[in-house]
C-alpha cells in the first residue's frame, strides 16, 4: 500500500464560532472533499470543531526560520510601539 499519489493537506479547525481557524495537523487525501471527510473523522471525533478548512500543503508559502534575524530585526528597536513605553501620571494611567 502506498500513499505516493495522495496529496498532502493541512487541516485547520474552528473550535467555536467567533474564533480563528487553528492549524491542527495534516493528512493525505485524493481531493479536497475527501480531505474534509478525513479531517472530520480524524480531528473532530469529540466535537472539537464547528468548521474545517483543508489547504493543499503545497499552497502554503512559509517564511524561513534561517532568515528570521533580518526579517524581524527592525521590530526590536521600536519599544514605542508598546503602550507601556509611555509613562503617565497615576490618575490617568488606566488609559
Amino acid at each position: 500500500m502506498t500513499q505516493d499519489n495522495l496529496h498532502l493537506f493541512e487541516v485547520f479547525i474552528r473550535s467555536k464560532r467567533g474564533l480563528d481557524h487553528k492549524h491542527v495537523g495534516s493528512l493525505h487525501a485524493e481531493d479536497p472533499a475527501q480531505a474534509l471527510e478525513y479531517a472530520r473523522d480524524v480531528y473532530t471525533r469529540r466535537s472539537e470543531g464547528v468548521s474545517i478548512w483543508v489547504v493543499n500543503s503545497s499552497d502554503i508559502h512559509a517564511s524561513q526560520e534561517d532568515d528570521s534575524e533580518s526579517f524581524y530585526d527592525p521590530m526590536d528597536d521600536k519599544p514605542y510601539r508598546h503602550a507601556t513605553h509611555y509613562v503617565l501620571p497615576d490618575a490617568v494611567n488606566n488609559m
Binding site: Y80, R81, A83, Y86, V87, L88, M95
Partner: peptide, 27 residues
C-alpha cells in the same frame, strides 16, 4: 460578525499606544 470582531480585537490591542502617546504630547 466574526471577522469584524476578530479584526477589532487585533486593532484594540495595537491601538493602546496611540492614545497614550497623544496624551504624553499634551502632558
Amino acid at each position: 460578525y466574526g471577522p469584524y470582531a476578530r479584526g477589532m480585537v487585533r486593532i484594540c490591542k495595537e491601538e493602546s499606544f496611540h492614545q497614550r502617546q497623544g496624551y504624553e504630547i499634551m502632558l
